[in-house]
Design a protein around this nucleic acid. Structure first.
Length: 271
DNA sequence: AGCACTGTTTACAT
DNA sequence: TATGTAAACAGTGC
């Protein structure tokens, strides 16, 4: 499911249930999810207490009493907090047994998701978090000129730049289309043609749209992709993504592939 | 049946 | 270094 608003929604739901619980055992059924050596991962997480759940970009950060567990849901990753042995299927790849008779299940139909253990001093200074750009929700002092200078250093389409996560983190295929529509920018425009004013609008609308999407618990487009049974509501506020008609000028929207990703925009309103 | 598609990221070739 | 393509995988829909 996850772009920033969906990951933030998962974070909030999990945090209510999990803080204070101890991970008493870990079962790994598909090791491709775990980026570390399996024994290293298990030995460092087993018997640790979950003290907090944080987020940066699209990453979930489980703060343990010693170190962190980093988790990225990629396309289909989902967590379920359920009583032991009450739910199982072939797409559940990691099971965290908790000390209260409940389990945290990680389900991932496409097996793209990743988890790793990070030591206290590694978290923000090593891959992958040290590669991330500014988080429009978490970072309050964003250097607009710096963002612009990074954008105009590139010649690839602005949509591709925003999907890279290295300048701004949190936007994915849906919200990039929405942000560029609000900013009236053609997603094909090369980075080196983006003005400071346009760059500032990208930052401003990223904040606005992501905030509103979080308030609506994210976007649920295809029903099977809902996580934790939590259905988002922001699909009712989308302007262009999955749409046919421009809500502003009523022209037919253009649908193209950029970076292999389906892209919706209005070639009348977005220049 | 076969192909195109999917809310992500990264490894690899050029 | 920068950019474009393919790959990781499983399911749905035409």
């Amino acid at each position: 499911m996850p772009e920033l608003p969906e990951v933030e929604t998962v974070r909030r739901v999990l945090k209510k249930d999990l803080v204070g619980l101890v991970i008493s055992d870990i079962e790994i059924r598909y090791s491709g999810i775990i980026e570390d050596d399996l024994n290293y991962f298990i030995n460092n997480i087993k018997n640790k207490t979950i003290e907090d759940i944080k987020r940066r970009g699209k990453y979930l950060i489980f703060k343990l009493n010693e170190g962190y567990m980093l988790s990225h849901l990629r396309m289909e990753g989902k967590y379920f907090y359920v009583p032991n042995n009450s739910l199982d299927n072939k797409h559940i790849h990691v099971i965290f047994k908790l000390n209260n008779g409940y389990s945290l299940l990680y389900q991932d139909v496409r097996k793209f998701g990743k988890m790793s253990y990070k030591k206290e001093d590694e978290l923000y200074d090593t891959n992958p978090l040290n590669e991330l750009g500014v988080d429009p929700i978490l970072d309050t002092n964003i250097d607009n000129e710096l963002i612009h200078s990074k954008i105009i250093n590139k010649r690839i389409p602005i949509k591709s730049i925003l999907l890279e996560q290295s300048i701004i983190t949190g936007l994915g295929n849906i919200y990039v289309d929405e942000v560029l529509f609000s900013a009236k920018i053609d997603p094909n425009r090369p980075g080196n043609t983006i003005t400071l004013e346009e760059s500032n609008n990208i930052i401003r609308y990223s904040k606005e749209i992501l905030e509103k999407a979080i308030l609506n618990k994210g976007t649920t487009i295809r029903s099977y992709t809902s996580s934790l049974g939590v259905e988002g509501n922001y699909q009712n506020f989308l302007n262009v993504h999955t749409k046919n008609i421009c809500p502003h000028c009523k022209n037919t929207l253009t649908r193209v592939k950029i970076n292999g990703r389906t892209t919706y925009f209005c070639n009348n309103c977005q220049r």
